[in-house]
Design a protein around this nucleic acid. Structure first.
Lengths: 166, 166
DNA sequence: GACCCACTACTCGGATAAGTGATGTCCGAGTAGGGTTGG
DNA sequence: CCAACCCTACTCGGACATCACTTATCCGAGTAGTGGGTC
């Protein structure tokens, strides 16, 4: 049971996009440079975010990614669901319907498996907490520790990887 | 991100062991028959429970597994940790230390990554809920839906897979 | 000089490999009980 | 008849294959800018 690293990458990239503060699309190459990630693979990880409506993509030269909405309107749950899919981590295979229970009438299985129900309830707490946390609030936490971050990001890109200037 | 099916198997087997209500060890073969599972693989899944102190195992003929303690004292968290290991689902790779942040002094990374902290906090809610749920309470839920379960288990085994009688 | 057009450089998007962990199988170490043999 | 011993049947435990999914890479479709040619 492990959450894909794509979740971490995606969340970081959303914050980075906001810190960069540009209105034009940012290419995968520039984003990847900001975290030292392999560009092609980062691109692959960001595509689900586009499908989920968290980012918008622009193809072609001068193309790239933009935040589709404010960080206020993106939760950690949104990011997780986009990358990992909507399915729950615990999936009940209904093994209770075999062996001992095989001969019971179908009505015996109307009620959900008690183990499944308990696991789902716990997982729901997790998702609730994720849904309550916006990327904006996470960004605020980061800036409380390091208020210079936005400036640092913009300066670094201006020096190391400036956008193509006309 | 998917929880191993071993967690479902392990939890069910603990309940089954209690329902069977025998004092002698129950072999993997009998347990597997109760849920229609492959015996050898179930054995493999139960071994971590022994290491975690949830079950005790007896080798040799007449060997098998027993509950090491009451269902009251086993939580879903215990089962999950035994099978999946103690590591968190979300593991931060500290990609923030690369690229833009590479030149910052080390002191900038004393504070934990804000994304990591938020993800961990949410995951903690999940684990808290799992730790609050004992197998006994899950069993109670199951019996509320089907009060005949304990009897059904014992009858089924007496008819289909009786323990070796001297 | 201005407009149109082909060409190049660069981007996303999905198709295609490589690697890692989960899933599944098999055999060896060890134990209990029963049968056999000797007293 | 009784006791000691060996032998068999059965069990867990871990070593050994198989498979799926995550991780990683590559090429094609498409777009914006550029340069040249033509009116």
């Amino acid at each position: 049971m492990r959450i894909s690293e794509g979740v971490e990458w995606a969340a970081h990239c959303c914050l980075l996009l906001d810190w960069m503060g540009v209105d034009e699309p940012v290419s995968t190459a520039r984003l990847a440079a900001g975290y030292g990630l392999p560009p092609a693979y980062l691109n692959k990880q960001l595509q689900p975010l586009v499908r989920a409506g968290i980012l918008t993509s622009t193809p072609g030269k001068r193309g790239g990614f933009r935040l589709a909405r404010s960080l206020e309107d993106i939760t950690l749950m949104d990011v997780l669901t986009a990358i990992e899919g909507p399915e729950e981590a615990f999936r009940c295979d209904e093994i209770r319907q075999n062996g001992v229970w095989a001969d019971l009438p179908e009505s015996a299985f109307r009620a959900p498996c008690a183990i499944d129900a308990a696991m789902r309830a716990a997982e729901l707490e997790w998702r609730r907490a994720l849904a309550a946390r916006t990327l904006a609030s996470v960004q605020t936490d980061a800036e409380l520790q390091a208020p210079y971050l936005r400036r640092q990001v913009q300066d670094w890109y201006a020096e190391h990887y400036p956008a193509h200037t006309p």
